[in-house]
Design a binder for these strands. Sequence first.
DNA 1: AAATCAAGCCAAAGCGCTTTGAAATTGACG
DNA 2: CGTCAATTTCAAAGCGCTTTGGCTTGATTT
Lengths: 359, 359
Amino acid sequence: MNLKQLSQLLELSQTTISRALNGYPEVSEQTRLKVVEAARKHGYNPNSNARKLATGRAGSIGYVLPVGKNVDLDPHFVEFLSGLGEHALSREVDLSLTPAPYERETEAYRRIAASRSVDGVYLSSMRNDEQRIGLVRGLKIPFLAHGRALAPADGYACVDIDNEGAFYAAAQLLLQLGHRRLAYINGDIDFTFAVHRLGGVTRALRDYGLPPESLQHHSAAMNEENGYRLAMTLFRDKDAAERPTGLLSASMFVTLGIVRALDQLGLRMPDDVSIITHDDVFPFLKPESFSVPLTTTRSSIRAAGARICERLVDIITGVETEPVQEIWPVDLIVRGTTGPVPAESRPVRRRATEDAPAE
Amino acid sequence: MNLKQLSQLLELSQTTISRALNGYPEVSEQTRLKVVEAARKHGYNPNSNARKLATGRAGSIGYVLPVGKNVDLDPHFVEFLSGLGEHALSREVDLSLTPAPYERETEAYRRIAASRSVDGVYLSSMRNDEQRIGLVRGLKIPFLAHGRALAPADGYACVDIDNEGAFYAAAQLLLQLGHRRLAYINGDIDFTFAVHRLGGVTRALRDYGLPPESLQHHSAAMNEENGYRLAMTLFRDKDAAERPTGLLSASMFVTLGIVRALDQLGLRMPDDVSIITHDDVFPFLKPESFSVPLTTTRSSIRAAGARICERLVDIITGVETEPVQEIWPVDLIVRGTTGPVPAESRPVRRRATEDAPAE
DNA sequence: AAATCAAGCCAAAGCGCTTTGAAATTGACG
DNA sequence: CGTCAATTTCAAAGCGCTTTGGCTTGATTT
C-alpha cells in the first residue's frame, strides 16, 4: 500500500494525505482523523527511501565502523550503543554503520557525504593525528565528536570526559597517600584520551615536585593480556624498595590482568600496591567484582552515547548552532584498592616537609 | 554534482552515464573509461536515496536493537559486529540499526518492512516464545536467524552453534573424570541457547545413568555478579562431600565471578572443583587470562557475524533459496580447570562398573 | 450585493536515480 | 550501393514521496 493507493481509496489527493499524516495545519481535523485511521487500518507506512529523496533528510545518523582482521572494537561500544539507541528511539532516528578499514576511512566519509544517506555523523576514538574533523567539515556533514582532537583545539562540537582532570585527581590521591613511585598502564598513546590522561598524571607529579621520569609509563591496547604482561614487567623480580607502590590503570580489563599478575607474585592490594582504575561503567564487570573492590575514576559511557545522540540531532536540526565543547567531570570513587604507602617503601625523609606538595 | 550535471558536462545522456558507472554492457569501453574518469575527478557519487528509490534495493541489512533503561546488550555484540562489518565491507552493504524497546519490537519490524529501508534483517537472541520468525516471514522481509527457535523447528534459515552438543561434550568430560555432583550456571533460560545447553548436560547425565535432579542448575543474566552470587550459593558452607565438584559456566564473565567466589572460599581449580566455561572468543578477556587457564567450549562469534552477513546477502540476492539450518560444531578445549574428581568426593563404589556409561 | 479572506483541498512539479523501448550509428556483406 | 544486424546512445517513464502555488468553498466584511 502506497500513498497513491491510499489516496484513491479515500478519494482524496496525495497532497492531503501526506499533509494529514505529517501534521500540517492545512487540513481539517476531521479529514486528518479519517486519514490517520485509514492509514493505520491498512498498515500504510511511507516508503522511507521516497521520503528521504523528497525531503533530503535521511532520518538517521551515521558512524564509520572500523573493521579489519586485527581491529578490535572497544568492548564498551555496546554500552555506548545502548545509550545512543535509547535516545535515538525517542527522536525517531536510526543508526547507520558503514564499515571501513582504517586506510579507507576517508573514502567512506566521502561516499556518505555525497550519497546523503545520513544526516550527520559522530566521530569517536580520536587520534593525535586526527584528520576526520577537517574532512567531514569540508564535506559539509554535520558532525559531533566523542572525544577531542589535539588539533584543531576548538571550533568543533564535542562531548568528552575530563580525562586530564580525572587522572590528575587519581594521581593526586596516590601522592597524598604517600606514594612516590608511581606507574601508569595507559591505553594506546596514539589516542588523545591517553595523552590527556598522561598529562593529568604528570601535572600531579609536577605539583608534588616529582620529575616526569619518576613515572613508569606503559602504553598498549587495553586488554587483560597487556595488563598482565605489563604488570609483570613492573613487579616481577623487583624488591619492595624499587617497585612501584601506586599504579594507575586505563581500564578494568587491564586491571583484571594486573590483579592476576599481583596474585601470582604474592603482592596484595592495597598493602603492597595501590591501584586506581578508570571505569567506563560496564554492567558485566563492575569495580566491586574484584577480590578487592576497585578504587576508580568513573564516567558512564552509556550516558555519553545518549547525550551524543541528543546533541547530534540538535546540530542536524539546527537547534544547536555554536560548536560547544562539552567536557564532563569524572568521579573519583574510593573503594578498597587504595591505601597508604607501605612503611618499608616510604621515602627516606630529609626534611619533614618533603611529603607535602611542592608549591 | 549529480547525474544530470555530469551528463551535461560530458554531453552524454543520463542513461549512458548511469550504465557506464554500473557496469552494463551496452556502453563502449571507451565511453565507460571517459565517464568513470570524469566521475572520479568531479567526485560524483550517486545519491543513495534516489538510487534506493529507483531500484527498490536498500543496500543495507537491518537489525532491531533492543534498548531500554535496564536492557544490556550482549558484550559479545562488538565481536559479532566486527565480523559482520568485515564481510559487509566486501559486499558493499551498510548496517542499519533500528532501536526499539522489547515491547515495541513488532512495530519496529512492521515499519522496517513497509518503509523498505533495508533489504533484509537478521534476528538474534532467540527466545523460547519467539514471535519474530512468523512476523518477518509474514512481512516478507528476507531474514536469517542467529540461533534457533524452539518452534517452528525448521523451515527458516539460521546460523547457530551446536549448543546442545557442546554442553553434552563438556558434561561428558566431567563425568569421564569421575565427577558426579555437577552444577551448571546457565544464562537466562528464556533464551533457546540456554535451553539447548541444558539439554546437552541432561542428556550426558542420562547417558551416565544419573537422574536430571542430580544437576544443580541456576539461570541468570551472564555477568560477573551473578557468577559470584550463584557460586556462593553452590559452595558456601558446604562440606566436601556435598558440594559440586564439576561446574559448567555459560560465559567467561560468569566465570570471573565464580573464580572470585572460589578464591574467597579457599577452593582450588581443578583440585576442589573442575570448571568448563563457554567462550565466544573475546579479545579483551581470554581463557588464558585466568589464574588457572580455563577449559572451554569455544566458538567464535566474530566468525558467526561474518557468516551471517554473507548468507543474508545471498538470501537477499536470491543466491540462497532453500532455508538452510547451519549448525556449527563447537570445540572443547582442555586447559587447566578440569581434572579428576577429588578423592574424598569419589562416590562409594558398589559395583566396579558403576563409573561407566549406563548403556 | 460585491469584495475580501481564510480554510481546505488539489494538480503538478520536483527529488536524482534506473530502466524500458526506440532511435541513431556503425560495419559487414551480398 | 542498399540491407541487415550489432552496437551504442538517447528520451522519457517511472520509483513514492513532499511541497509549491493555485483553485474552490463558504463565511465575513464593507
